[in-house]
Nucleic acid binder design. Structure first.
Length: 604
DNA sequence: CCCCCCCC
């Protein structure tokens, strides 16, 4: 296989542009002659950086790989001699040197013998060399291009500002290209998050600050304003809007205090220029990486994630006293649910907790929330987290449809990790499985699995249908007869009579197959319509009446929520299916769900 | 120049 490299592109990227930055969006095909990790001078440099020698077959040039593409190297997707289509690059002038940054690439072939005989380019930084940087012997099919202007040439310029901007700043830098060694840059970025104004007071003094997260299509960066600058910029910068920003200070980011992947952060100063931009094409909206609520178990405590859910419940405003500062902090707990059938609690703090007032089960998208382990899994807002009520995104529409069709009526699993005797959750109509599928997918073998099924009782084991239990509330332990008394070991008490409780083993079937399900007292009460005490009494008094109760209970159809778990009994390991919830079919509800489904087909 | 992200 042979490749046509985009000859001339190295010379072009390497030659000094009329101004500082040049962003190249036309794809070009290049060969990577070398991929090398470079350690920058700063000890605070937290991310590896890779230097890549790119070749267009005629010349070679040095480039840096944008850090968000580092995984291409670490995963072995690119290496020496890889031929790749570079989809986006930027070329900046840094201390009289050209800095080419690769922002996007597609691998065409991993290992190809060196193409052509690429030569070094003349040193652009050499005094007086600027006129000679495009070698005359290189035919360049790609003419040098003026730097990217604040506004796309094809779109109408917004009134009165594009001209002032372009004359004042010349060119737009990608956020990824910012570093402390550059000045005279302008970024065009969206404010994706804006904090409240925070006041502080410590030994070193007192003051106030606020911060924003800025995003363009290359990266994100945090920006912070202090004291008097707060008064100027806090009203000016609005979440969701796009701004030209220049003349801010670029500092090394303190990684401990930010979950953004950027080595730098901005400090807004008195002379920092901020101007709203109405031409917002090419400036992405927030990108989410949603985790289903069922997947929170997979995430480590204290990690951050994005979730989207329906607010099933919003607790009233409350407050906590911080142990660290003994300050009172307002908080509000939201209970989120999603299609995965799980619910999780999420905590809002401060102003956000106070001002929350959506009472109509809105969809909310959260970005960068903290994963906690309270109640198995919990979520909490950071000051850098964002919360968007009823966002205009596809995931939100699907959730809305699902919830209005049937989510509102179902119950949900919580993440309570404790191996409690308690139920795992409720029937989930949209996640219903058939019995043969449950066996074929071996639910419950690796870990505990939950499923919902609709099935009909075929047979109930009639021996051992109940056990004598301790009558103490919530004890439920088996009691043993001692003389005319029944003794509970756990409560260390004796009773004149036990309270019988059901322990049910039954075969159920649906159209696909059958399974044995185990259930406790609530299941027995549901299928027999009487307490175990009553049924035991009936059995002892009149066996044919007992048999008719058993008979009547079979051939009934229920919605089941079940928990599949492996256990070993008498040296035999098998998966047992415990019923966590049984509900008789409510035809009105079933019809409502079907109607909802017809109205909201996307809920599928 | 903050840097806490809280509690059950």
């Amino acid at each position: 296989m042979s490749f046509q490299l985009t000859s001339g592109i190295c010379a072009r990227l390497h030659s000094p542009a009329p101004s500082d930055a040049d962003t190249l969006n036309q794809p070009c095909t290049l060969q990577l002659l070398s991929v090398k990790k470079v350690s920058l001078a700063s000890a605070n440099q937290p991310t590896d950086r890779y230097r890549i020698i790119i070749s267009d077959g005629v010349n070679y040039a040095q480039a840096m790989l944008a850090t968000q593409l580092n995984n291409y190297v670490t995963e072995g997707r690119i290496a020496k001699n890889t031929v790749a289509k570079l989809t986006k690059m930027t070329s900046n002038s840094v201390q009289d040197k050209r800095l080419i940054i690769i922002l996007g690439l597609e691998v065409l072939a991993l290992d190809v013998p060196k193409i052509g005989d690429p030569k070094a380019l003349p040193d652009a930084s050499a005094p007086g060399s600027s006129t000679a940087t495009t070698p005359s012997n290189v035919a360049s099919p790609v003419p040098p291009r003026p730097p990217m202007q604040p506004s796309n040439q094809n779109t109408p310029q917004p009134q009165n500002q594009a001209t002032s901007k372009s004359s004042r700043h010349g060119s737009i830098y990608p956020i990824e290209g910012l570093s402390p060694y550059q000045n005279n840059w302008t970024i065009k970025a969206r404010v994706t998050q804006k904090s409240d104004i925070k006041h502080w007071s410590n030994q070193r003094g007192e003051g106030k600050l606020f911060s924003v997260t800025l995003m363009d299509d290359s990266a994100e960066i945090k920006g912070t304003a202090f004291n008097t600058v707060v008064d100027d910029l806090y009203p000016k910068l609005e979440e969701g809007k796009v701004y030209y920003i220049s003349k801010a200070r670029v500092n090394l980011a303190k990684k401990k205090f930010s979950n953004l992947t950027n080595d730098y952060e901005l400090s807004f100063e008195k002379h920092t220029e901020v101007e709203e931009c109405h031409e917002v094409s090419n400036v992405p909206m927030v990108k989410y990486n949603f985790v289903p609520l069922s997947g929170l178990e997979e995430l480590a405590k204290d990690s951050t994630c994005d979730v989207i859910g329906i607010v099933k419940e919003a607790a009233p405003l409350s407050e906590i006293i911080s142990k660290a500062s003994s300050r009172s902090i307002p908080k509000r707990e939201l209970t989120l649910v999603d299609k995965s059938g799980f619910s999780v609690r999420l905590t809002l703090w401060g102003k956000q907790a106070e001002s929350y007032n959506a009472d109509d089960a809105p969809v909310i998208a959260f970005k960068g929330v903290k994963v906690g382990d309270f109640g198995g899994r919990s979520l909490s807002m950071f000051s850098s987290s964002t919360m968007t009520i009823n966002p205009d995104i596809e995931e939100a529409f699907a959730l809305r449809g699902w919830y209005d069709a049937y989510g509102a009526d179902q119950s949900f699993h919580s993440h309570s990790s404790a191996v409690s005797t308690n139920t795992g959750g409720g029937f989930n109509r949209s996640e219903m499985r058939n019995l043969s599928d449950i066996k074929e997918s071996q639910l419950g073998t690796e870990k505990v699995d939950y499923f919902s099924a609709r099935a009909t009782i075929m047979h109930i084991k009639s021996d051992n249908i109940s056990y004598p239990a301790c009558p103490t509330q919530d004890c439920n332990k088996k009691v043993v007869q001692e003389g005319d008394q029944w003794r509970c070991e756990k409560c260390d008490k004796s009773f004149p009579r036990p309270e019988y409780r059901y322990i049910i083993s039954m075969a159920v079937a649906d159209w696909s197959g059958q399974a044995w399900l185990q259930g406790f007292n609530d299941v027995g009460v549901a299928i027999f319509g009487m307490t175990a005490n009553d049924l035991v009494e009936k059995r002892d008094r009149n066996e044919s009446e007992f048999n008719s109760v058993m008979q009547k209970a079979t051939c009934q159809t229920y919605n089941f929520a079940c928990r599949a778990k492996q256990d070993t009994y008498n040296d035999q390991t098998r998966v047992r299916y415990g019923i966590t919830k049984i509900s008789p079919l409510d035809y009105k509800e079933e019809i409502a769900a079907l109607v909802g489904l017809l109205r909201s087909p996307w809920a599928l």
